[in-house]
């Protein structure tokens, strides 16, 4: 346990120490939320813009830390032989991955705190099925952290850098984060429906709405994505 927590502390410390990690995880999501909320940029059909924007930015935050920050950091750790060197210590791969998950969850706690603080400024109060929303966040974390690690362990560090940022942008624009898919042209909406970002954002909107429901379909999509990603990672992930 001591090794696990020491490693998790190091992971968290290095995430927050890197400028790009800090920017993408803790600055971009609250800044976007603030920007859109001030300008009231949101689709019609929501009582207030913040009711659409907060679930979007919570989903964005999970992608920022799991896909972008964790993926890129891990890719460079692999590039610099850190993963290899840790492999010769008693820490073990299980605890190394466990420590990465703990660090991701810790960053998410900070992100949620910041986003909820901004949202409450625009009159948002917790409604709906909050525990189910947290469950959806956990499912999303599993999906995007697995995706980040898959890319990090499969491609070179430079490729991971481009790929993680590219997918991030794709998910934001076409994956139901910036704009809901039912307001998009048909073919684009069809592509977006299959993306995990839309499943996570929709699950959060469903659970945090004043008349909430259980997002079973979305949770199933996220679980399927996670299983698929892990199956591929088992074949392609390299520690060196």
């Amino acid at each position: 346990m001591r090794a696990l927590f020491a490693q998790a502390r190091m992971e968290l410390r290095l995430t927050l120490r890197s400028g790009e990690g800090l920017l993408v995880t803790l600055i971009i999501p609250p800044a976007l939320l603030l920007f859109f909320a001030v300008l009231r940029i949101a689709p019609s059909g929501y009582a207030r813009p913040i009711d659409f924007l907060l679930p979007s930015m919570l989903a964005l935050a999970v992608m920022s830390v799991g896909l972008v920050s964790l993926g890129i950091r891990t890719a460079y750790e692999r590039h610099y032989g850190v993963l290899k060197r840790l492999g010769a210590t008693p820490l073990g791969r299980g605890r190394l991955l466990g420590a990465k998950v703990l660090a991701v969850l810790a960053v998410e706690v900070i992100q949620i705190g910041l986003l909820v603080a901004v949202a409450s400024f625009f009159g948002w109060r917790p409604t709906g099925l909050v525990p189910v929303a947290l469950l959806a966040l956990l499912f999303g974390t599993a999906t995007f952290a697995s995706l980040g690690l898959l890319i990090a362990g499969t491609f070179r560090a430079e490729t991971t850098l481009g790929l993680a940022n590219g997918l991030y942008l794709l998910f934001i624009l076409l994956g139901g984060i910036a704009w809901p898919l039912d307001r998009m042209p048909g073919p684009i909406a069809l592509v977006g429906l299959l993306l995990p970002s839309n499943a996570l954002a929709t699950a959060l909107r469903t659970t945090l709405s004043p008349s909430p429901g259980w997002p079973l379909g979305e949770l199933a999509i996220l679980a399927l994505w996670t299983l698929g990603i892990l199956a591929v990672a088992r074949r392609t992930f390299r520690w060196e």
């Binding site: 001591r2 020491a6 490693q7 210590t89």
Partner: peptide, 23 residues
């Protein structure tokens, strides 16, 4: 190892204290 193996943005004290927790 022949090269690398250490977090570029961590300090000697940090990595030694981290590795000490493994043993």
């Amino acid at each position: 190892l022949q090269s690398g193996g250490i977090y570029p943005t961590a300090t000697p004290q940090e990595v030694l204290e981290l590795f000490a927790c493994f043993y």
